[in-house]
């Protein structure tokens, strides 16, 4: 390695480290706050590395905090607070997984259908999905709320699951359509000529080759439904049916915010998607290359 190249590489690394630190700083700060004991959270000067690491905030979130006490030690039942966190977490998992499953199954079947069969109207589906992909949730949320209200589904996890389908289905369709178009058809044709049934071909040949696209679409779908706030805010009324994004807003208790608790919940809310992202990063980029962006 020449000296010049060494300098360039060092510079590149230094720059990368700096950029990465800045980009990740909000999350690092959240993590740091969440690990501080209550008295240090508001301390000035603020410290990045907690003087003492405590998991109290996480423990309160996961195990529930039955009550807290005022100075006068009278009993104060907490109303909204942390004891619901695990429920909200579970709700988030259920609705994200549910809507993703529905969207993926439906759009995989449809993408296969429109790229392999000829019938009237099939060409319109990608356009249509693209438009659907563009429509912001704010337009859909109230009409969808009325649909759910008509089906007597409001305030249930079903309403959210279906609600998220309306956001995730179009882009799963769009992405998978692009992906399926790129899968060479020869293998399927050969198998069909050999007398394999359509279903066999679909399961044995098409699905395996479409898997990267399906995974990418599923990840996007999970992210979108996990992160949604608006639909959940409007659709769900009882505290135990909320997903995380809206639930944690209850930590703003009117006149008191426990930032340590808040940041701990922010960390826990990010964690599942982070893990997923780490595991599937390769597929994500592939997905973008194939579908989310043409070309």
């Amino acid at each position: 390695m020449s000296a010049l190249e060494f300098v360039r590489k060092t510079l590149a690394y230094a720059f990368l480290l700096l950029v990465t630190f800045l980009m990740c700083f909000p999350l690092i700060w959240a993590l740091s706050t969440s690990l501080k004991p209550a008295r240090d959270v508001m301390a000035t000067p603020p410290r990045l590395i907690p003087s003492e690491v405590t998991f109290a905030n996480y423990r309160n979130l996961i195990l529930g905090k039955e009550q807290y006490f005022r100075a006068d030690q009278t009993y104060v039942p907490t109303t909204a607070a942390p004891q619901h966190f695990t429920t909200w977490f579970a709700n988030s998992v259920i609705v994200s997984a549910g809507s993703t499953l529905i969207s993926i199954v439906i759009s995989t079947l449809a993408a296969y259908s429109i790229t392999r069969f000829r019938y009237w109207g099939r060409r319109i589906i990608p356009y249509f999905s693209l438009l659907g992909y563009m429509i912001p949730s704010i337009i859909l949320v109230f009409p969808m709320f009325m649909v759910m209200s008509g089906l007597a589904l409001t305030n249930s996890l079903w309403s959210l699951t279906f609600g998220y389908v309306s956001i995730t289905l179009p882009f799963c369709m769009w992405l998978l359509w692009a992906f399926f178009r790129g899968i060479p058809i020869e293998l399927e044709e050969a198998a069909l000529m050999d007398g394999a049934s359509r279903l066999r071909v679909f399961v044995d040949i098409v699905l395996p080759s479409a898997l990267p696209g399906i995974i990418a679409a599923a990840i996007f779908s999970l992210i979108v439904s996990w992160n949604d706030f608006l639909f959940a805010r409007v659709f769900i009324n009882s505290i135990e049916n909320l997903p995380l994004t809206v639930g944690v807003m209850h930590f703003f208790e009117g006149v008191h915010v426990d930032w340590g608790l808040m940041m701990a919940s922010a960390v826990l809310m990010t964690l599942p998607m982070a893990v997923l992202f780490m595991l599937m990063q390769r597929h994500l980029v592939a997905g973008f290359g194939a579908g989310a962006v043409k070309g």
Partner: peptide
């Protein structure tokens, strides 16, 4: 026909969860 069968779930979901809300809006 199989192709159409495969696209029917999408059609239903799209009508219910995409087209109808937009029309309603």
């Amino acid at each position: 026909r199989i192709g159409i069968l495969f696209v029917i779930p999408f059609a239903i979901a799209a009508l219910l969860f995409m087209v109808y809300p937009v029309i309603e809006a």
